[in-house]
Design a protein around this nucleic acid. Structure first.
Lengths: 331, 331
DNA sequence: TTGTAGGCGTTATCAC
DNA sequence: GTGATAACGCCTACAA
């Protein structure tokens, strides 16, 4: 640790109080001479305040938390990087917690953060509504990323998201326009609002295509689900020429399984994913996908959260733009 | 925040000191009755100690830092997850800092961690030796992951790594045994020790193959470098039937460029990467690679660091096993 | 067996 | 203009 304020005060021949006032510019009646001396000594001995001690007093640890399902899912690192960059620039640190979408782990993690007097928390995906209300009760600023909960819209909870319904509506429409046969759907359980699924279904009906439950497979947001879904659909004798997937991992698993089954992408089946993880462009055929602005998510979320912590602005809902990135899997 | 010790003490009709002693089992002379009452009240009101306040006294924030180049590089999330799992299990939190391999940023980040009275730090890749000595001077436990610095071997710095020299020696030997032509090498700048490069070169000489500097390209650990490397080697008219890459990203970039240039993998060129990131198995052809135990790295590093923080054991050097995972790119 | 008092490093309210 | 002094929540000699 660097020197303490007490030591600095001793060297300058003044009291702690004076040092604190000078360093925080919280009292402009200090003489030029002392001010100069204190500042120069602080520089000379490379004094930096102890954030922990300060936090005990001013109730701001300048530390924020990010709770996510699993950092190994390639969708998340971009968000983390965005948060960390913004946090760092504002003098904040980032604690991350993997929750595996388990409410119990989530609650344990939250408890730990609380004991560390966390200044604010960013959530993505998982998050039991009870946790949110708990947070609000505690007056801890919260921002949700890639998740929109209508019920919270008016509460002081920040929400940053893309319009997944419209994105899936547009992407499914694109698949319909490029292929004659049925369009299948593989996704994870989306909880209550189901924007992806509804976008898919609305696109079908908007194009006067029948919706058929048996062309839908629901699993997790992972590669295995993509493979399982294709396996299952084919085993049931379902033929489809378009496949809309809940995310890129599912799409990649699906494409691998399709190839294994002797079906060609895009000739026999056109495939679309969601997220635009780095490898979407690198698999072969490269994957058409709905691009989510992950880094931007992170930066915006951190900015909103910190503004809220510092009382500069209240959190609000913020819809970002998505893009349909068309690649080989739909040529 | 939950209730404070003071409030708890008031409810139990005792002093803070007594509560502290009971909760920390630091004094066994407290009467059964009071002990029971305090514990039950603590449970009832869900008391949990304020880690921040405690830290100020006992000098352990139970928070560790992980400094890495960029979380978006798929090699790192597995390590982060390993660290976090182990930390969480032991009641520690994890702060991560992206440094982009920039010594200046690294030093800024470290300064922030220091101000937060971080209990220990894990580093990977980047790390100026001056930072290490600074840390040692400050008596802050340090563990290095995927990086072995001989000079630090006897210092109290934990080091966890695989024997990259041997791994690259073996992998290059495998390429030589499977192909007649030259074996090229694309990698990032490894700094001073250069285990990958030396492993590659030693394998050549051990197989009585000539080492030719012009078959080597050095860039960054990223996809672009793989593409550039192949582009450059081919532009110079170099023909090679084996390609040893510094990591999987380089290998994937290289394979894409080879295909673009009309060369077939593995028929014309066999390729090997390093790390075994998730996508190594998913690209087509799937990538042969040296598997690094990333999750294990993280768990071991955190365990070693926390033991060191708590004075249970001194950090030491720990070599883990690697595996050569043979996939389509070498069939 | 339990409580008092001082301190960890900082800020903030009053006095002087 | 500057400095005691009392918090913030917890721990720990040392007293009682």
């Amino acid at each position: 640790m660097s020197i303490t304020m007490k030591e600095l005060a001793a060297m300058a021949g003044v009291s702690c109080a004076t040092v604190s006032k000078v360093l925080n510019k919280t009292d402009h009646h200090i003489s030029k001479a002392k001010t100069e001396e204190i500042l120069s000594l602080a520089r000379k001995y490379d004094y930096t305040p102890n954030v922990i001690a300060k936090a005990l007093k001013v109730r701001n640890t300048r530390t924020i938390g990010f709770m996510l399902p699993d950092i190994r899912n390639p969708f998340f690192p971009g968000i983390v990087r965005g948060i960390e960059d913004e946090a760092m620039a504002k003098g904040y640190s980032l604690i991350i917690s993997n929750t595996d979408n388990d409410p119990e782990i989530e609650s344990d993690c939250f408890r730990m953060l609380q004991n560390r007097m966390i200044s604010g928390v960013i959530f993505t995906r998982a998050l039991s509504t009870s946790t949110v209300s708990e947070l609000l009760e505690l007056n801890i600023p919260v921002v949700l990323v890639d998740r929109m909960i209508d019920a919270l819209r008016k509460e002081s909870v920040g929400q940053i998201f893309i319009n997944l319904h419209d994105a899936f509506f547009a992407a499914t429409g694109f698949l319909i326009s490029r292929s004659d046969g049925p369009v299948a759907f593989i996704c994870a359980d989306e909880g209550s609002d189901r924007p992806r699924f509804n976008g898919y279904r609305d696109a079908l009906s908007s194009a006067s295509r029948d919706f058929d439950e048996s062309f839908v497979y629901i699993g997790q947001y992972d590669i295995e689900t993509g493979a399982e879904g294709v396996e299952k659909l084919l085993a049931c004798g379902k033929k489809f020429s378009g496949l809309m997937c809940g995310n890129d991992l599912i799409a990649i698993g699906a494409m691998n399984k399709l190839r294994e089954k002797g079906l060609r992408v895009p000739d026999d089946v056109k495939v679309i994913g969601c997220d635009d993880i780095e490898f979407a462009a690198l698999v072969s055929p490269s994957l058409t996908t709905i691009k989510q602005p992950t880094y931007e998510y992170g930066r915006k979320a951190a900015r909103m959260l910190i503004d809220s912590i510092e009382g500069k602005a209240s959190p609000f809902s913020c819809e970002l733009d998505y893009t349909l990135v068309i690649r080989e899997s739909c040529y």
